[in-house]
């Protein structure tokens, strides 16, 4: 009784705030938060685009009023930016591949296991890193992999080492894989859940080896999840700042570090904006390529929504 009264009251409020005549605008209203978010991003990009076209005067530390492409020319003319950009793209590609290879079996076992305990342990292991920030996790690796770290201490007991395991490119990629693995598992798990287990059983009952079933049934059906995970992992790795700083030892910068340096170290917002705009364009282009080549359904660029 009480519940129906409350429902009626809520319906009354809804009718006052959003009369039935507005019903055809409901869809548009639901889009408003997304539109607002995009507008904020676009406004920020527009500001950066404008800033990137003004040159810094180092005698006054003011940017000039004239529009010029000098910041882009400067960026294009310095090999450092191309090296750092290449390192970032290659690193993001390697991290994406390794992360997906590790995340898929994790997600598969988590979804398919018949043991409630196994699922709980995997879920806790998945969510635990989210409670620890990226910087703390990176410092954790310094403690474990450092010259006098846990692992080198163990090697020392065996009469080996010490080995240099941090402050290099592989350690940055390692840190990124560890950081991004939970994101990938979370995106792949729903896709695996959506695959009816009976389809896999049907494949095996028709004589397909598990590997063949995996290749021809499971993997294609999990493709939307894999594409989503690839997209998220790739863009997050490409634009990461903290791991190269903490685990890279200062000589393995990614492009986000170059953006930071331009803005904050040399106070050149024009150059920083130019580098940031180029990063956004490249990330967008690569994301579009991933979606075009691999995307399907909601994540596809085709008109058909499967």
């Amino acid at each position: 009784m009480g519940a129906s009264v409350m429902l009626e009251a809520l319906e009354g409020i809804r009718a006052t705030l959003w009369p039935r005549a507005f019903k055809r605008f409901t869809g548009a209203m639901l889009l408003l938060p997304a539109v607002a978010l995009v507008l904020v991003l676009v406004a920020g990009l527009a500001w950066m685009g404008d800033a990137s076209l003004h040159l810094l005067d180092t005698e006054t530390f003011e940017t000039g009023a004239d529009y010029t492409a000098a910041n882009y020319r400067q960026m294009g003319g310095q090999a450092t930016y191309w090296i750092v950009l290449g390192r970032s793209i290659l690193g993001a590609a390697i991290v994406t591949l390794v992360t997906l290879v590790l995340a898929f079996p994790y997600a598969y076992v988590m979804v398919r296991t018949g043991s409630a305990w196994t699922r709980k342990i995997l879920l806790v292991s998945l969510f635990l890193p989210f409670f620890i920030g990226q910087v703390v996790r990176a410092y954790g690796w310094l403690i474990i992999l450092g010259k006098e770290g846990l692992l080198n201490s163990l090697f020392g007991i065996l009469g080996l080492g010490p080995f240099k395991m941090i402050y290099n490119y592989p350690s940055v990629l390692f840190g990124l894989v560890q950081y991004l693995l939970p994101f990938a598992v979370l995106l792949i798990a729903p896709a695996v859940t959506a695959i009816d287990e009976e389809i896999e059983l049907a494949s095996e009952s028709l004589g397909a080896h598990w590997l063949r079933t995996f290749r021809h049934v499971t993997l294609p059906m999990a493709k939307p999840g894999l594409v989503a995970a690839a997209l998220v992992v790739f863009t997050l790795a490409l634009t990461d700042y903290a791991m190269p700083v903490i685990l890279g030892g200062g000589t393995n910068d990614f492009i986000a570090n170059a953006v930071y340096d331009a803005f904050f170290r040399i106070s050149d917002s024009g150059l920083g904006s130019a580098v940031a705009i180029v990063l956004v364009l490249i990330a967008t282009l690569l994301a579009a390529v991933i979606l075009t080549v691999l995307g399907s359904g909601t994540l596809g660029f085709s008109a058909e929504r499967r």
Partner: peptide, 13 residues
């Protein structure tokens, strides 16, 4: 700015 750029170009190269 110039010194920073040169130092980076050496160390990041």
């Amino acid at each position: 700015k110039e010194w920073f750029g040169k130092f980076k170009s050496i160390m990041q190269g």
